[in-house]
Design a protein around this nucleic acid. Structure first.
Length: 279
DNA sequence: ATAGGCGCCTGCTGGC
DNA sequence: TGCCAGCAGGCGCCTA
């Protein structure tokens, strides 16, 4: 579910509530997530204060006052929210942290359980988890030369390349489609057939689309909510994703849907054509 | 190198 | 009304 804009929204929402707060107590459900919760973590976390919280790709990392990290990944349906203690606990809530203000909780809820909550020992262990070999640069820090090089070095299609977290971190199915639409590039085009100009256009399109989505607090389709439980608004501005059969906002040609890299892919067959000039 | 398939889960929708 | 297939913001593993 959540891609970079959603995760960024969660982190921004949580930061003012979490930074400076201590974990007074916690509870964990017995359902396992992508990775099992280690019982030892309960003791480690008690009384710990959150020093800072930040995003890396689709990962959420909270630095604790013992230099450990509490790390979250939202998978497809994860929700990480600040909630008043007295509010009923929703089904599929897997971890509850009571904060030391005595009134609020941090809750991790995940219907499909593809998400992850782990405690990481130190900075080095965090770097191993988010190894640059597995997790590429942030889209906003993409160096044009790097991007051109990586993109043209692969024979995979652009859609598959965008979804590969090693090339660029944080782009998922929605924003891959939206970025390719913005750039006017066909999702099926091979990376190796991409000109320097096109690579650059794509890079700038990714940044623009993600920034717009962040400004709208991400996209809510089914389960996504931000750190304060609010839905996003960017789903109302999709131009390709999920708009199969609807008119292209630029040329009115019906948006098509195909399967690429195992994922549903939406595009305008007219605007997103190799070597079209203008529109 | 890379495509495709599966598995991990639950829930919703649409067709019959 | 029920049942079943297919779909869904991710990702890791396996095979060919």
């Amino acid at each position: 579910m959540p891609e970079l804009p959603e995760v960024e929204t969660v982190v921004r929402d949580l930061r003012p509530h979490l930074v400076g707060s201590r974990i007074a107590s916690l509870r964990v459900s017995r359902h396992r997530l992508r990775q099992r919760w280690l019982p030892a973590w309960n003791q480690l976390l008690l009384g710990r204060q959150v020093k800072e919280i930040r995003r890396r790709g689709k990962w959420i990392c909270a630095l604790l006052d013992d230099d450990r990290y509490l790390v979250f990944h939202l998978g497809m349906s994860g929700q990480l929210t600040i909630v008043a203690r007295e509010l009923p606990v929703q089904k599929h809530t897997h971890v509850i942290f009571d904060l030391d203000d005595g009134v609020s909780q941090l809750r991790f809820r995940d219907i499909r359980r593809f998400g992850l909550v782990v405690v990481v020992e130190d900075q080095a262990a965090l770097e191993a988890l988010l190894d640059p070999g597995k997790l590429g640069p942030e889209p906003f820090d993409l160096k044009p030369a790097y991007w051109r090089r990586r993109l043209t070095a692969t024979r995979r299609c652009l859609k598959a390349a965008l979804l590969d977290q090693r090339l660029v971190a944080g782009v998922g199915n929605i924003y891959a489609d939206e970025s390719l639409f913005e750039a006017g590039l066909p999702p099926t085009q091979r990376g190796s057939q991409t000109s320097a100009d096109e690579a650059d256009r794509l890079r700038r399109s990714i940044v623009r689309v993600l920034n717009r989505a962040i400004a709208r607090r991400g996209s809510s389709i089914q389960s996504y909510v931000g750190g304060e439980g609010l839905q996003g608004e960017y789903q109302n501005e999709f131009r390709a994703y999920g708009r199969t059969g609807e008119p292209c906002p630029r040329c009115d040609t019906p948006i098509e849907r195909i399967r690429l890299a195992g994922r549903s892919t939406h595009f305008c067959p007219r605007c997103q054509k190799k070597a079209v000039r203008g529109r």
